[in-house]
Design a protein around this nucleic acid. Structure first.
Length: 132
DNA sequence: TGAGCCCCCCGCCAGC
DNA sequence: CTGCTGGCGGGGGGCT
């Protein structure tokens, strides 16, 4: 039920308020274990070679299968998960934005800000102001 | 905002 | 032949 609600109750204005973990489960949770691992290692190296090794596949096959199962390329999925992690910390804690950015694996505040603009059409500051 | 560099992604193809 | 795998190269998007 949650999965269907998640699909159909998107907020207008680009403010997706649902769980990326759920939406990435699209059809089956073939990559559920991988997603759990990623969520627990957001600050680390989540490059394609690392993910492929974690999934036990070659880079080429991992790219193909992940896109097939998820509808997203690995790098785009990572960006979504990082943004989701940052959103949580922004609204639930008072940690400085700089620290949140590094804890979620963004190379800098600037990188995090650009990801927010791309996916949520807001800045981290604005997001915190409106959702904390 | 700009410039340079990195690496993701995808087409291609040989192998099984 | 069909379908899957995985290495390679380059173009472009995005990070620093």
């Amino acid at each position: 039920v949650a999965r269907y609600l998640v699909v159909f109750f998107k907020r207008p204005g680009g403010q997706a308020q649902f769980s990326e973990m759920l939406s990435l489960q699209a059809t089956d949770d073939k990559f559920g274990a991988l997603h759990d691992w990623i969520s627990n290692h957001l600050a680390g190296d989540l490059s394609l070679p690392v993910l492929a090794k974690q999934a036990g596949m070659s880079e080429r096959s991992f790219s193909r299968h992940y896109l097939e199962a998820t509808g997203l390329t690995p790098a785009r999925a990572i960006e979504r998960l990082r943004v989701e992690g940052a959103r949580h910390l922004l609204s639930e804690t008072r940690l400085p934005i700089k620290r949140i950015s590094q804890r979620c694996g963004f190379g800098s505040e600037e990188t995090m800000r650009r990801s927010f603009m791309r996916l949520l059409a807001t800045t981290p500051q604005d997001y915190r102001a409106r959702f904390s």
